Amino acid sequence: MAEHHTDVQAFFGARAAGWDTRFPDDGPVFAAAVATLGLRPGDTVLDAGCGTGRALPALRDAVGPGGTVVGVDVTAEMLTAAARAGRGRDGALLLADVTRLPLRDGVFDVVFAAGLISHLPHPENDLRELARVTGSGGRLALFHPIGRAALAARHGRLITDDDLRAEQNLRPLLAGAGWRLVSYVDEDSRYLALAVRDDATGRGG
């Protein structure tokens, strides 16, 4: 797992400084996704794998000054870019591994995760860790600014049947990690899978 994280850190670390200029039009798409989460003033939200913090302003607007926003990323350069962009004003920036969070059980109402699932070394265990820090009835949003087909085309690939983000694969994966998939959108303009922490299975372990 350490080797995997080193690879992730090397990949994103090298791209952090130019990340926002590479994807300059993503802001409204992030804001639209956040608007679907049902966040209320005073809620507590985790941006897991926050990168340069593009979701943090919208998350802060949703929970208001009395809410709590925490952005976690394993790549220091990404958090540095987030701080330079002023996004530390919208949420606490924490250098940490989302697969082993230094956070208490059940503290978040919502976990927002943009582009995260494809970088998890052990997806079911790692999604269970996100369930651990989420309170009863809490929600998980797995998001990407473009859908699977558009993303594959961007990289010159085709969608494969083993893609974890496909609904038929994601639903049982989430269920094994203590989540129940409640809505699924995969279109060119966005990918957004919403799940609720399933109290019938506790935290999945």
Rank of each mutant, 00 (worst) to 15 (best):
A96F: 09
A96M: 07
A96L: 08
D97Q: 09
V98D: 00
V98S: 03
R100K: 15
L101H: 03
L101F: 06
P102Y: 08
P102M: 07
P102T: 11
P102R: 07
L103H: 02
L103G: 01
R104E: 14
D105P: 14
D105Q: 09
V107D: 01
V107H: 07
F108L: 05
D109F: 10
V110I: 11
V110H: 08
V111Y: 04
F112Q: 04
I117H: 03
S118G: 14
S118A: 14
H119P: 10
L120G: 08
L120K: 04
P121F: 00
H122M: 05
H122F: 08
E124C: 07
E124M: 12
N125K: 14
L127C: 02
R128G: 06
R128M: 02
L130Y: 01
A131E: 00
A131L: 02
A131Q: 00
V133Q: 01
V133T: 08
T134C: 12
G135C: 05
S136Y: 10
S136V: 12
G137E: 09
G138T: 06
G138L: 07
R139T: 13
R139M: 11
L140C: 08
L140M: 09
A141T: 08
A141M: 07
A141H: 10
L142F: 08
L142R: 09
F143C: 09
H144C: 04
P145M: 09
P145H: 12
P145L: 08
P145Y: 11
P145C: 09
G147N: 11
G147W: 07
A150P: 04
L151D: 13
L151F: 15
L151N: 15
A152Y: 05
A153N: 13
R154I: 02
